[in-house]
Design a protein around this nucleic acid. Structure first.
Length: 822
DNA sequence: TCGAAACGGTTTTTT
DNA sequence: ACCGTTTCGA
């Protein structure tokens, strides 16, 4: 069913009327609904009668579609047709229950999922689906905030700061507060503040509950950061949710407005919601959040409680869909309790289980079941399929990561030559983005077309961010982060000194940075040359602002050319600069497409949409041609399916990731990730690992992933195993490599050994040096030292070592540090 | 103020 | 190994 890659046309292929390909994701808000595929877009929509909407659904699916009243949880196993259920449920609401489209709010996590939902509902009910809000959590909140920003003291043309912007701003804050950037890295502070926001803890609450020095520092940074965001008229990603909740809770009339409007709220991937999103849903539905007795918030019940308790608006009908086994975002605040305790949160809730899988062979499902069954904290659920056993799973043990990639390339080649697969039907999954490189190298060499999802993203490339910074400043002059970013880009002679003088002046005068630029003449301690450059810069901004009237395309072109950005790159005349020029051209193309699709679209609208684009939105869609092999992380793979899947890097330390090995909870999340990976495959699944893998310079011998041992032996055909333990890692450090021997792919004798155990010839894990306080050591570059402290266990063991007057005291990760014990 | 050189962190996953 | 950032010299 829900394939984006199989029989149905890509979600955007033919539905993206007028888009003309190119931008592979839907940038456009809920108001823009593509006409239903199949062309019957005229007034007389494809009006299925209510009964017709139930055709072809199994009894559980049908029950979920027709359910009335009480909050409904649909526990939808992988491939069990949940998107179909959601789409049919919405259509059924309209067709059978007289619900008006404007009363429906459907929330997803990615733009791609939202677009697919919109398209599928559109295909069922026709153009009136346009009235619905089908959007991501973030874009729904932006929409709410755009109309209500004034109540929060924000202007409606606020900027949206992504993680990188937030980090820059936090760096500025830590500088202001004179914090040691070594002790308080912006990255860590950003993560902690983000966690607080996901828990709906504002800076005052954070200050009040801080009990350690570290927490007080975080609260202090949080407070200053939030103030700077407000000054810049900007929200960060987490603010979007938190502030939307704030508005709903603080202003009963706002809450009532949305509750009157949305009588049906549907949430996809409910297992990925964090606390803030959970509360948001409850506020929108009109069921104030269930409050723990011991939570501090209990003393201060949300205003909104009174609103619905007084009977103004009865709660909306809620339907959430999710699968606790596919919860893989706990690390960023997703709270699995939201789905696990749904029935406690909503005491009269109904639960429907979808266990029949329409995607994979029974072999693949049995493998998935075998793995996920090892998780303890879990409600029993067993996927089944009537598609038959199909092919066996193929296992492969490679000598090194190049060998592994070569095997994948050969196998893809073999399958496509034999007509068993098209490149578009093949996906290669790995745990971390860094692992894509080896595959890319080999695929380029053998001429296999591919596309990498994620990694260095288009909108994170420096030149793109620079140009977008110009555009953001035009729309929101108070956007200090972006203004300071472009102040001296390209180089125009406004250095750190001048910038500091301007910032100081702004501070003293209590004016914005932009205002300080205008009054550069009064700024003390600024060089005449710099002042002149500043005047030229402000003149440039004025000039660009004048272009704004000519539409977004004109502005982006002007920003590219009149700033001198383009000419600087051209002058550089390197391959890298050439690439950047092309990227800028592509950005112009994106703006052009935006204007074609929304002729009335403003620059501000364009910027909002690019701010909310995610990796997962850029997955290539299958247009029926041979297409390309897709390379992506397991996380990006969720929600997709492919006839052929390679799950690579199955080594303890890689997958499961090193940093999860010591923590059972995190390990369970890794296992769910494995489950997600396995269940993406329709008919062919490959499991591969590598005996040695070079990670940042040094080779690492990792044992086979424990997940391999959890797949029933009988399901796997091991094409290659390694017999003897490879050369043990006896050479401590400085052993001059000797690697890169087997990069030719398929080189070396294929040593076969005893069949069917991934653990045959299990290599020893590379030992980590064990040190204790007082040990004397020698380091390749620091020389002799004495251990003063140790910490961490296993591969994350570290030691603080005093190397004497010359090198000082260092903290080193023993796994990597070139240290020998004496 | 700017470029080259040294440095150091990175490799978990993202709206 | 690689990248971006900081530091140092011109």
């Amino acid at each position: 069913m829900s394939t984006l890659f199989g029989e149905s046309p890509g979600a955007f292929g033919e539905s993206a009327a007028g888009a003309g390909g190119g931008v592979p994701y839907d940038l456009f808000g809920p108001a823009v609904l593509a006409p239903p595929a199949g062309g019957d877009a005229g007034g007389g929509a494809p009006r299925l009668d209510a009964e017709g909407l139930l055709d072809g659904l199994n009894p559980q699916q049908r029950a979920a579609v027709v359910h009335i009243g009480a909050p409904l949880l649909v526990v939808a196993g992988a491939g069990s047709g949940k998107t179909r259920v959601l789409a049919h449920r919405i259509a059924y609401l309209l067709a059978a229950r007289g619900v008006r489209p404007g009363e429906v709010l459907a929330i997803t996590f990615t733009n791609k999922a939202a677009a697919e939902m919109r398209e599928r509902v559109g295909a069922l009910v026709g153009p009136r689906a346009r009235e619905m809000w089908v959007s991501t959590f973030h874009s729904a909140c932006v929409r709410i905030l755009r109309s209500e920003a004034k109540r929060l003291g924000y202007g409606s043309s606020f900027s949206i700061y992504d993680a990188a912007d937030a980090q820059r701003l936090i760096t500025m804050v830590t500088r202001d507060l004179d914090l040691d950037p070594k002790r308080h890295p912006a990255r860590g502070l950003a993560a902690q503040i983000s966690n607080l926001k996901n828990e709906l803890i504002d800076w005052e609450a954070a200050r009040d509950r801080a009990s350690s020095h570290q927490e007080r520092t975080v609260a202090e940074v949080y407070a200053a950061y939030q103030q700077r965001l407000a000054q810049a008229n900007a929200f960060d990603f987490d603010d979007l949710i938190m502030m939307a909740v704030n508005v709903l809770q603080a202003f009963p009339d706002v809450a009532e407005h949305y509750r009157r409007r949305f009588r049906h709220v549907l949430v996809d991937e409910y297992q990925d919601t964090n606390h803030a999103q959970y509360v948001l849903v409850r506020e929108l539905v009109g069921q104030p959040a269930h409050v723990d007795a011991d939570a501090p918030a209990a003393a201060d019940p949300p205003v909104s409680t009174a609103t619905w308790a007084s009977g103004a608006v009865p709660p909306a009908e809620l339907c959430v869909v999710g699968d606790a086994d596919q919860s893989i975002y706990a690390f960023r605040g997703a709270n699995i309790r939201n789905i696990v305790e749904f029935e406690e949160d909503f005491p009269n809730a109904a639960v429907i289980l979808l266990e029949q899988n329409y995607r994979s062979t029974q072999t693949i499902l049995s493998a998935a079941n075998g793995v996920i069954a090892r998780n303890n904290q879990r409600k029993a659920k067993r996927l089944w399929s009537d598609a038959g056993d199909g092919e066996k799973i193929v296992g492969f043990v490679a000598d090194n990561e190049h060998d592994e990639a070569a095997f994948v390339a050969e196998e893809v080649d073999r399958l496509t030559d034999a007509g068993l697969a098209r490149p578009a039907g093949v996906a290669v999954f790995y745990r971390t983005n860094a692992q894509s490189r080896v595959f890319e190298e080999i695929f380029v060499r053998v001429g296999l077309p591919y596309r990498v999802v994620g990694g260095v993203r288009f909108y994170e490339r420096r030149e793109i961010r620079d140009l977008l910074a110009y555009l953001r400043v035009l729309v929101n002059p108070n956007d200090t982060v972006n203004l300071r970013r472009i102040l001296n880009v390209p180089r125009r002679g406004i250095g750190d000194r001048a910038e500091a003088a301007l910032a100081g002046f702004a501070e003293v005068e209590r004016i914005g940075f932009a205002a300080a630029l205008e009054r550069v003449g009064e700024v003390p301690g600024i060089a005449t040359r710099s002042a002149k450059a500043v005047r030229e810069f402000t003149a440039l901004l004025t000039e660009l602002r004048a272009v704004e009237a000519n539409g977004p395309v004109a502005v982006v072109e002007a920003a590219r050319e009149r700033t001198g950005y383009l000419s600087e790159l051209v002058a550089e005349d390197t391959a890298e600069a050439q690439g950047r020029v092309e990227n800028l051209q592509e950005l112009v193309g994106v703006v052009q497409e935006f204007t074609e699709r929304s002729p009335e679209g403003t620059l501000a609208e364009f910027l909002e949409q690019v701010s909310l684009v995610a990796d997962a939105d850029q997955i290539p869609t299958d247009d029926g041609s041979d297409g390309v092999v897709t390379l992506m992380t397991l996380h990006s793979a969720k929600g997709l399916e492919f006839p052929v899947v390679f799950l690579t890097g199955l080594e303890d330390g890689v997958f499961p990731h090193l940093r999860t090995l010591g923590d059972p909870t995190q390990l369970e999340e890794e296992r769910r990730l494995a489950y997600v990976g396995v269940t993406r495959a329709r008919s062919r699944l490959y499991l591969t690992r590598s005996v040695v893998r070079s990670a940042w310079g040094q080779p690492a011998y990792n044992p086979p992933s424990r997940f391999l041992g959890e797949v029933p032996d009988a399901l796997v055909d091991w094409r290659r195993l390694v017999e003897a333990a490879p050369e043990p890692a006896a050479r401590p450090w400085g052993g001059s490599g000797g690697f890169g021997s087997g990069t030719g792919g398929g080189s070396g004798p294929a040593r076969r050994s005893l069949p069917n155990s991934p653990f045959a010839g299990r290599p020893a894990a590379r030992p980590v040096l064990e040190l204790s306080q007082g040990d004397r050591v020698t380091h390749d570059s620091f020389g002799l030292g004495v251990v003063v402290a140790t910490g961490g266990v296993g591969d994350s063991a570290e030691a603080t070592i005093d190397f004497g007057a010359d090198a000082g005291t260092k903290r080193l990760l023993l796994r990597y540090a070139p240290v020998e014990k004496l």
